[in-house]
Design a protein around this nucleic acid. Structure first.
Length: 299
RNA sequence: GGUGGGGUGACCGAGUGGCUAAUGGUAGCAGACUGUAAAUCUGCCGGGCUCUGCCCUACGUAGGUUCGAAUCCUACCCCCACCA
């Protein structure tokens, strides 16, 4: 089950538990971080008490995760859930993580960690234009996409001796599941309203204090776990680079933009069975509809 | 009331006679996306059309100067600062 931020995926997931014994796998690249509960809008303790959630609180804010990590982890959780004869429901908004699960990434050859780190440090210092040009030279299939993706193309080409498209074509990993997608949507004005409310709620619940405490424990403001919407803005405020009054508004805007990107992804990148539901309706109704549809068309 | 500064597209903000439907930025819309993905990027962005171009409308308002004005002049309106 996918959909943009603030459509109410968690509520529907919980409501589904009335239909099947299920466990939820969270496909969310931010909720993997421990401690950042408010800033990543994790399901609450109570919600997690009602349905078992996997994929939350996996690493410290200073560590890095990836779609590959997620896919491997999720495969294990899936196997376990099936072993317990329950229904696995993947819930999340991180398109790439979901794709890693449903389509499989390419099989990444082992990369030397040391060389990788020094290459990282090197590319980080290159001029953007130079970086792009270099990526294009090492990987003729490189279509642009900015710093991060250029660095990735360079990394693969240099450390494996073959460009990205080679691995993508030759070594696709097996997909872990046959997807049966449920896409939750809501009219744009409603979504925007929910996003604004969510931003204010986060602050009210102590977003800034949460981030301050993570920083106080010695995590760098650039820690991967703090690189997320809301967290970023909180860090800016705590470092005096943003007035307090502007925090909620800034979070609302970035969240809106992110939600839009998610919708673009779900509109164009999902392949396979897709059931799109208007999530303006109450979660119980949606859950019932999903259960019906599953009984009718599900695998 | 006086003096000075200013009023530019949804917003901020350049531009100070033609190359200007008007640099940038923001917001918005659309798109890309194979291991950092809440990331990283791309396109569009006054309106209309018979759409490699054409026609309207537009730089506070109204006039004027000029072949030609967002840019110069005059009056008026509004905002800010200082002086009364």
């Amino acid at each position: 089950m996918v959909g943009p931020t603030a459509v109410g995926k968690t509520a529907v997931g919980l409501a589904l538990a009335a239909h099947w014994p299920l466990e939820i796998i969270s496909a969310d690249s931010r909720q993997i971080y421990r401690r950042l509960d408010i800033g990543t809008a994790k399901p609450t303790r109570r919600e997690r008490g009602r349905v078992v959630h996997h994929g939350l609180d996996l690493i410290e804010p200073g560590s890095r995760y990836s779609a590959g990590h997620f896919a491997r982890g999720a495969e294990q959780w899936l196997a376990d859930i099936r072993h317990r004869e329950r229904m696995p429901v993947v819930v999340g908004g991180t398109g790439l993580y979901i794709r890693a699960l449903t389509e499989g990434l390419f099989q990444e050859p082992p990369l030397d960690a040391g060389r990788r780190r020094s290459l990282d440090a090197f590319t980080a210092r290159l001029e953007p234009l130079e970086l792009l040009r270099w990526a294009g030279r090492l990987d003729p299939g490189f279509r642009g996409g900015g710093r991060q993706r250029a660095a990735r193309a360079i990394e693969i080409a240099l450390l494996t001796g073959r460009p990205l498209p080679h691995w993508q074509g030759v070594a696709r990993a097996r997909a872990a599941v046959v997807p049966w997608y449920i896409v939750l949507t809501v009219p744009r004005p409603v979504l925007h309203q929910r996003i604004a409310r969510r931003a204010e709620e986060m602050i009210k619940r102590g977003l800034i204090e949460e981030v301050a405490s993570v920083l106080a424990d010695g995590h760098a403001p650039t820690a991967p776990g703090l690189d997320g919407i809301g967290l970023r803005e909180a860090v800016e405020y705590l470092h005096g680079r943003r007035p307090r009054a502007s925090v909620a508004e800034a979070i609302t805007i970035s969240t809106r933009q992110y939600a839009k990107r998610q919708q673009t992804w779900f509109r164009h990148q999902l392949t396979g069975a897709v059931l799109t539901l208007d999530a303006t309706r109450p979660p119980e109704r949606l859950a019932a509809e999903i259960a019906d549809a599953w009984a009718r068309d599900g695998a």
